[in-house]
Simulated assay, not measured.
Amino acid sequence: MSSIAEAQNLTDRIAELLREKLILGEWAPGQRLSEAALCESLDVSRSTLREAFRMLTKEGLLSHEPNKGVSVVVPSIASIIDIYRVRRMIECQALAQGYPMHPALERMRAAVAHALACRDREDWLGVGTANIAFHKAVVELADSERLNVMFSHLLAELRVAFGLMQDPHFLHAPYVEMNQQILALFEAGKPDQASRALNDYLVHSERLILAAYARRLAEKGIKG
């Protein structure tokens, strides 16, 4: 492998690690990222880290301002509406046409079980992470690596938006049982009903998030 290819592979891996941190909710919207700290923790050069930053900036996850550095974006209301539009198109179709014995089913079950365990110990950020895992598994039913990659980017954007609300209990608690119900319908051989339930879920989630998000933006004086 050439040195150029090796450098690109390293950049891709670093970008994926940064993206995963966003999906896990480790960074808040508007938070400035320290190049020095990340270079040390990831054991990479500044040039590699900056290239990874550029990749995530193109994806709409980070923003760069001259003399201010790189920070996590504050998503707009319009972008959240668009994310949910795409989610309904991808997830509901994947569930409706999903093969009942698909390996992703086991990951859906594991995500629901993890969410229940986190709820019992009131780990609401953990519930949110389990919820992300459930929906990633739903998309995996479509057997499309392109969709998996695109959906991962969408979830990173959405998790960033969640961070501004600062109330993970309010945000995630209602959906533990909803995911259980969707899983039960799919396991019972009722993919169409599961898909409709998921669509209702996403509509409810979008309305809840937009209302709370708009309030939060107003409190912070941020224009959506």
Rank of each mutant, 00 (worst) to 15 (best):
Ala188Arg: 04
Pro103Leu: 06
Arg107Ser: 12
Thr129Ala: 12
Ala184Tyr: 07
Leu158Pro: 02
Pro100Ala: 05
Leu171Ile: 14
His172Phe: 10
Arg109Val: 11
Ala184Val: 04
Ala117Leu: 07
Val139Asp: 01
Leu217Tyr: 07
Glu122Val: 13
Leu208Gly: 13
His135Ser: 01
Ala130Leu: 01
Arg119Gly: 07
Ala211Gln: 14
Val138Glu: 03
Leu198His: 09
Ala197Thr: 14
His102Lys: 02
Trp124His: 01
Ala111Ile: 04
Ile182Thr: 05
Ala214Arg: 13
Lys190Ala: 15
Lys190Asp: 12
Glu91Asn: 08
His169Cys: 13
Arg216Leu: 03
Val139Leu: 02
Lys190Gly: 11
Asn199Thr: 15
His102Tyr: 00
Leu147Cys: 01
Glu91Met: 04
Pro103Asp: 00
Arg107Phe: 06
Leu125Gly: 10
Arg88Phe: 04
Asn199Ile: 14
Cys118Tyr: 03
Tyr213Arg: 02
Arg121Ala: 07
Leu185Asn: 07
Val139Lys: 01
Glu157Trp: 11
Asp200Cys: 15
Ala214Tyr: 05
Trp124Phe: 08
Gln93Lys: 11
Arg146Thr: 12
Ser152Thr: 14
Ala104Tyr: 00
Val127Ile: 07
Ile209Glu: 11
Gln166His: 06
Ser205Lys: 15
Glu106Trp: 03
Lys136Phe: 02
His135Met: 00
Gly128Lys: 04
Glu91Gln: 11
Gly126Thr: 04
Ala110Gln: 11
Glu140His: 10
Glu157Met: 07
Ile132Gly: 05
Met165Ser: 10
Gly189Thr: 10
Arg146Phe: 13
Gly126Phe: 08
Val203Gln: 15
Leu154Tyr: 08
Ala173Ser: 13
Gln166Asp: 10
Leu147Tyr: 03
Ala194Pro: 12
His102Asn: 02
Arg107Asn: 13
Tyr99Ser: 11
Val176Thr: 03
Arg196Cys: 12
Asn199Glu: 14
Asn148Phe: 01
Val176Asn: 03
Cys92Thr: 14
Arg121Asp: 04
Glu177Asp: 03
Arg216Gly: 05
Glu177Gly: 00
His169Asn: 09
Leu210Phe: 10
Val160Gln: 08
His153Ala: 05
Arg119Val: 05
Ser144Met: 06
Leu155His: 11
Ala113Asn: 11
Met89Tyr: 04
Asn179Tyr: 06
Asp120Phe: 09
Val203Thr: 15
Met89Gln: 08
His172Ala: 03
Glu187Ser: 15
Asn131Glu: 10
Pro191Ile: 13
Arg196Glu: 14
